[in-house]
Write a protein that binds this DNA or RNA. Structure first.
Lengths: 211, 211
DNA sequence: CACAATTGATGTACGCGGTACATTTATTCC
DNA sequence: GGAATAAATGTACCGCGTACATCAATTGTG
């Protein structure tokens, strides 16, 4: 985003996130993620180790670069959702907007080549922080829409279920070969039944609350 | 479990997991989790740093000791589930069995005193590995019961939703004060709607599959 | 009782991730 | 030609986790 065409003040950036990502991807493929140190990455990219941490907050962030750029829009996409629609339907719409710009070509390597890179374990431990962050976003939204507390079990279940569906969709998307359709289609299919089911459940709870 | 009353062969254990847990709990309360090093813990417990890693594989494991001892039973409890019952009903029954022995008194400190100990963040990053492990267990079970592939979005959604409900229940349980009921009750309430909803959805998908 | 076998505890050394911070280099604005 | 700004570097450090060799205490056996 800071691709400010107009030259800003201080020293211009010599390297870029993309440079580091490329170098990292090469090395991960050559010797797996675990066997590649941050120093290795920066050495190949031709920068100092310190520079790496100017661009990423952790080694595992490299694997999540594309994800991180898109997922930030979830909050605003939720805010855009029409007031009248059921809560989970709004969640579904928001997710579809978020993943809309992700074409069939932009699959992260970390997903397609888990075994090769040995990233499965890291993806889990580092991905789950992100999972919880988005779960918190969804919980807040669902709480606002349903009137239930954010700590309510149904709210949390719905949030987790939605994220699980999206994760499953992403997995299927990455798993399909070159003939894969855009991610949006997978997410749509995965979320439909989940959202329908929970919206029905929330409706019932509304009735109960009205007592 | 290796509480073999009959004395085994080699040198007997001088310290114990419990000793280290106690020492750790003290220090976490005094200076938070982050500010406590493994060396601090072992020093207070009166053992060497190396010994810590004979009892735990990571510093964060201390927070999950009770959880880890119980959750291992999930797989067998699932296996015990009657064949005829719907898949998610079986999941619910299995979870209820797992948490049955957990009384109102055995709340882990890490949950009740998150702010004090500063464990929230660590609980997330270390807890999520466990979350995924159990999610995999549930996915395998649900896939077997429903005939769907373990990678199916509905299967994964159901697994995540169930775990989310259990997590929410545990949070509510820990959040309630001394008057809390046994964890079993919270889990029961949280899982009921989720399991009912997904079992219904799986039924519909069975019909569709029959086409 | 001596001695092997076993098993827990210790010490040492190291690699790596991540942080902090001071310093240098390159650019724009005045 | 400077300030001011911002990126890049160097250095030093801490703590987690691992590997591995060594020591210590116990049981069994001849």
């Amino acid at each position: 985003m800071p691709d400010t065409r107009a030259p800003r003040r201080g020293r211009p950036t010599a390297s870029s996130r993309a440079d580091l990502e490329d170098a990292a991807a090469e090395l991960f493929l050559e010797r797996t993620y675990a066997a590649t140190s941050v120093a290795d990455i920066t050495q190949r990219a031709g920068v100092s180790r310190t520079t790496f941490f100017n661009y990423f907050t952790a080694k595992s962030d490299v694997l999540w670069s594309t994800f991180d750029t898109h997922i930030g829009r979830l909050t605003e996409c939720l805010a855009d959702a029409a007031e009248g629609t059921p809560a989970m339907a709004a969640v579904r719409a928001a997710f579809l907007r978020v993943v809309a710009p992700i074409g069939p070509e932009s699959v992260p390597w970390a997903l397609t080549q888990q075994e090769l890179m040995g990233t499965r374990e890291v993806l889990e431990s580092s991905g789950l922080r992100r999972f919880m962050e988005q779960a918190a976003v969804l919980r807040r939204f669902l709480a606002g829409r349903t009137g239930l507390p954010a700590s309510d079990a149904r709210v949390q279940s719905a949030a987790f279920a939605a994220l699980g569906a999206v994760a499953a969709a992403a997995g299927a998307w990455a798993g399909d070969g070159v003939g894969r359709r855009p991610l949006r289609d997978y997410v749509d299919e995965a979320l439909s039944p989940v959202c329908a089911g929970f919206d029905a459940a929330f409706d019932r709870s509304d009735e109960r609350q009205a007592d």
